[in-house]
Design a binder for these strands. Structure first.
Length: 942
RNA sequence: GCCGAGUUGGCGGAAUGGUAGACGCGACGGUCUCAAAAACCGUUGUCCGAAAGGGCGUGCGGGUUCGAGUCCCGCACUCGGCACCA
């Protein structure tokens, strides 16, 4: 039994309490809904309307509808974009802002496996719950444009885009994707021949299909992929951590040769890097993408192995050091290794090179076996250089020297050509290997004095001349150019570029994802499901789980759950040549698929003829000026998607641009990463987390029920017992206070700790605003029409000026500080004049929209303030009646005087030199110089 | 190791090269109250001083400048990304 006596229950009180805030908030939310206040018209289609004003398209990284519900960290970005959207509407823009749900994914599938309930059921329930939690925030979204990636209508277009990618190839000459039909035409006309030179007419039908299929942007091939037995699925490189484990679940990942779907994202490497220059993104994210794509310029150099009648290419970024290449290394998995292995060790082979094994074949086989058994993690942990001699020698092309060829696991099969020329003088790893195996070390770049070990830096070339090639004395860049030229002339190599980026592994052995719109005919080659049969929907199955294995079972094989749905897999279709039997693809798409194009769907969410009508797409996403990339005007989300979603979405968008489906080259023109809200967590002496809201701070320590606890800082989560939910905040303070607090905590892009006890400051601010307009005892409006005094006019207009600049730059924390200062000024001087409070209410509207609407309506306005013009500064009131002038002597402040803003330099100097404390500080010394910045500053040098 | 961001009161944070610490939390003092809460008013970087005023202060060491949190050079530490990538 609680005895409650709170002011809001006293009928005579009209204080702005959480109860009153809640009442105001739900009332206005209902009115906004009823009036369709945030609906944004399209140029054409079912949402067509009057598209007056500039357009502004805002997006949030849409949420995954988790069953756990939201904590106060989740809405930070949504509030920020809402503030921007509401601000832009007051500037007259046509604002597109909506929120969809990224609803395919593992948690729903795991829940389904555990409960037997279809993942759709649980996912839809979670969406409903999340909608409810977010609605209470008063977000100004266009509800007509919301969707979930699991909606059959959305899946249809995801599959349609997959088919577009499948039905296209990358033309290196034109640097763009083109329809596969045009490639076929080039083969048919003889304009293009197969890589092996075979003519189209000489190829059998199946050979033709295989040739075409090998060029598609979405293709199946067998190659090393990341296999995660613990999850029962393969994963993209981007989903594997640096430790060689799955990002989700933290299971070990093994490299296995498997036949899987890939997307040819590597074709876009250059454009994905180069176009970063054309978008307005944080430098850190651009850098992460550049890093991930990992473009490096260098040379491919051919090394002949005469005894084996073979040759291999190496990639190097330092062709200038070729004279220092004293041995070569192939990755253990390199395809040429078996050809290079000699029958017996050559005369005089050092014992260290053989690992003590009698023949090269045995030594290589043993080394390869050990290397294959290592996980990625083990390879990283043991960085001691190991390897074994193959028995063969290659010829260094620039000087004809014979150099031994080794295999070693410090050379990776997936990068460059999987083979290197080793230059111990210039590379630390090669140095270590050379030391361990007694190989010669030749310096080819003059190192600064005192350098021991490898020197990878700049300097003049030395020891680098033979025959017609002499680069001694050349700086690194000039030497590289000279060597590449020589290699090209002698047919021994060429300048080239390699990338770290690998093609995107696109298939997953999961149930809860988009099925591939692909069937196989009797020849086992893939065929796209025609448009009119989309979407391919998931069949109902008795068991949603893939076959999972012991996490360490590297030899297991992926087996997708859809493969067990026999009736679905085997299907009779008429694909234009009469009804035939086909077998469906049983993998599903990764859950990045939906988010790789969803920006398009917001622009035309119900279109059944196209992903988006070209006119709607061009209006919302098209370039704003010739040569621009186009894209969403503001995209806000966490930095965790820097190389996953953001790279995939750019790739898909570029393919659609190449194929003429969109007018924008980039999906997101401006990207903003909001920081995270983190929280303190507390552990007692047993190292057990205790509920954070029960911890007290006193005597310089933290206490839980009189027991000392230690504080740590991290994410909000159930396991740390430090979750604060938006619902807690709505109840205690209301949504507007919560919004203002989150926006005032600090700069939006910086992570900061949540502190519930500080929220009251934002509530006090809103209460003061309320009190300026409403009598707390009677509820009457206390606003009058008095004229503003000069001081108040000055404060008001400097506030308008400053707040506009802050809003423009998304500096909501300082904007709020300025509004607080204005409010405090009005409170202090007792001004509740309409001329002051109306602009205050309007400026507050984007931040605390419900309170602002309520006050605006109490001020007598019948219309909502959503499209009311944002207050405009009157420059006449920016100048103050007097300014404080600071007087410095030798750089230190020695006096302050109040002066007129238009005081002259001479006048100000005289006043400054007469100020008593300044006179004292000068102390009769000679004045050498006086710097005057009227009217704010005088600096005196003695 | 490479790349990027950062380091300001007890705390979150403000500061176009020109009064460091706006605004908020907390703390302290006061008004109101029988009392408390709420609200309101005031103080609050630190040291010396009764005060006036002064010394010292933006991670550390230098430099440029009449003047540096801000610009330049070097270093330390924290966070994030990549990493045996040739």
């Amino acid at each position: 039994m609680r005895v409650v006596s709170t002011p809001e229950e006293t009928p005579t009180s009209y204080r702005y309490t959480s109860a009153l805030a809640g009442e105001i908030e739900s009332r206005w939310q209902e009115r906004w809904d009823a009036e369709g206040s945030f609906e944004a018209p399209n140029p054409v289609g079912d949402l067509a309307g009057d598209v007056a004003g500039d357009k502004y398209f805002i997006m949030d990284m849409f949420p995954y509808p988790s069953g756990a519900g939201l904590h106060v960290g989740h809405p930070l970005g949504y509030i920020a974009t809402d503030v921007v959207g509401r601000y832009r509407r007051m500037l007259g823009d046509n604002v597109l802002h909506a929120l969809g749900y990224d609803a395919f994914g593992l948690p729903a599938e795991i829940h389904a496996v555990q409960t037997g309930e279809h993942p759709r059921t649980n996912t839809l329930a979670n969406i409903t719950n999340m909608r409810r939690q977010l609605r209470r925030l008063g977000l100004a979204h266009d509800p007509r444009r919301s969707f979930a990636t699991i909606d059959p209508d959305f899946v249809r277009w995801t599959q349609w885009i997959f088919v577009q990618i499948f039905e296209s190839w990358y033309d290196e000459d034109q640097q763009k994707a083109r329809p596969i039909s045009e490639l076929r035409a080039e083969f048919e006309s003889g304009a293009r021949t197969a890589p092996d030179g075979a003519a189209w007419d000489d190829l059998a039908p199946l050979e033709r299909r295989i040739l075409i299929d090998s060029r598609r942007l979405a293709y199946v091939d067998e190659s090393p992929v990341n296999w995660c037995p613990g999850l029962g699925t393969v994963l993209a490189n981007e989903e594997v951590t640096a430790e060689g484990r799955s990002e989700r679940g933290n299971f070990p990942v093994f490299t296995r040769n498997l036949r899987q779907w890939k997307m040819r994202i590597t074709a876009y490497s250059d454009r994905l890097i180069d176009d970063l220059e054309r978008v307005d993104w944080p430098e850190s994210v651009k850098n992460m993408q550049r890093n991930w794509i990992g473009r490096s310029h260098g040379a491919r150099v051919r090394f002949d192995v005469p005894t084996a009648g073979a040759s291999f290419d190496v990639f190097t970024t330092r062709p200038d050091t070729l004279f220092g290449a004293t041995y070569a290394v192939l990755a253990p998995e390199h395809e040429l290794v078996s050809a290079l292995v000699t029958d017996e060790w050559p005369e005089g082979t050092p014992r260290a090179w053989t690992n003590g094994v009698p023949t090269p074949a045995e030594a290589v086989a043993a080394y390869r076996a050990v290397a294959a058994a290592k996980t990625d993690l083990e390879r990283q942990e043991h960085k001691d250089k190991t390897g074994v001699f193959t028995g063969s020698y290659a010829i260094n092309p620039v000087n004809g020297e014979e150099i031994p060829v080794f295999i070693a696991d410090y050379v990776l099969t997936g990068y460059g050509t999987g083979a290197i020329m080793a230059v111990p003088g210039g590379d630390q790893r090669d140095w270590e290997f050379a030391e361990a195996y007694g190989l010669p070390i030749i310096r080819t770049v003059e190192a600064p004095e005192g350098v021991e070990g490898a020197y990878p830096g700049e300097g003049p070339a030395v020891n680098s001349a033979h025959g017609d090639l002499d680069i001694n004395g050349l700086a690194v860049d000039a030497a590289k150019t000279a060597v590449i030229e020589w290699l090209q002339q002698h047919g021994a190599g060429e300048g080239t570029t390699t990338y770290r980026l690998r093609d995107w592994l696109f298939s997953r052995q999961r149930y809860w994802g988009e099925p591939f719109p692909i069937v196989y005919d009797e020849s086992d080659q893939p065929i796209a499901v025609p448009d009119h049969l989309l979407p391919v929907e998931l069949p109902d199955v008795p068991d949603y789980s893939p076959k999972t294995y012991e996490p360490d079972d590297a030899d297991s094989t992926p087996e997708p759950p859809l493969a067990r749905a026999d009736d679905w897999v085997h299907v009779t279709l008429d694909l234009g040549n009469g009804p035939r039997r086909y077998r469906r693809e049983t993998n599903t798409m990764p859950n990045w698929a939906g988010s790789s194009w969803y920006e398009l769907r917001y622009t035309d969410p119900h279109n059944t003829e196209a992903v988006s009508d070209p006119e709607n797409e061009r209006y919302w996403l098209g370039p704003r000026s010739p040569g621009g990339t186009g894209g969403v005007d503001l995209y806000v989300g966490g930095v965790e998607h820097a190389v996953l979603h953001l790279l995939y979405a750019r790739f898909w968008h570029k393919v659609l641009f190449d194929l003429g489906h969109v007018s924008s080259e980039e999906p997101f023109h401006r990207l903003f990463n909001q920081g995270y809200i983190q929280a303190y967590a507390y552990r007692d002496e047993r190292e057990v987390y205790v509920p954070a809201d029960e911890v007290e701070e006193r005597d310089g320590g933290y206490w839980h029920h009189d027991k000392p606890v230690t504080r740590e800082y991290g994410k909000m989560g159930k396991s740390l017992k430090n979750v604060v939910t938006p619902d807690d905040m709505y109840e205690a303070y209301g949504a507007d206070t919560f919004r203002v607090y989150e926006m005032s905590m600090g700069p939006l892009d910086v992570s900061r700790p949540w502190e519930t006890r500080a929220v009251v400051g934002s509530q006090r601010f809103l209460q003061r605003v309320w009190r300026l307009l409403v009598d707390e005892d009677t509820g009457d409006l206390r606003v009058d029409d008095a004229e503003l005094d000069a001081g108040t006019l000055h404060v008001l207009h400097t506030t308008i000026d400053g707040v506009r600049v802050d809003m423009q730059h998304m500096r909501f924390n300082t904007a709020i500080a300025k509004l607080i200062e204005l409010t405090n000024h009005l409170t202090k001087v007792g001004v509740s004049s309409r001329a002051a409070v109306e602009p205050l209410v309007l400026m507050l509207a984007p931040l605390a929209p419900h309170l602002a609407e309520e006050l605006w309506s109490r001020l007598g306005h019948e219309q909502s303030l959503i499209r009311e013009p944002y207050p405009v500064v009157d420059p006449a009131h920016l100048a103050a009646a007097s300014v404080t002038c600071v007087i410095q002597v030798l750089g230190k402040v020695r006096g302050k005087i109040e002066v007129s803003p238009d005081v002259s330099d001479d006048e100000l100097t005289a006043l400054a030199l007469a100020e008593p404390n300044v006179v004292k500080s000068i102390d009769g010394r000679e004045i050498r110089k006086v710097i005057v910045r009227a009217p704010k500053l005088v600096s005196i040098v003695v």
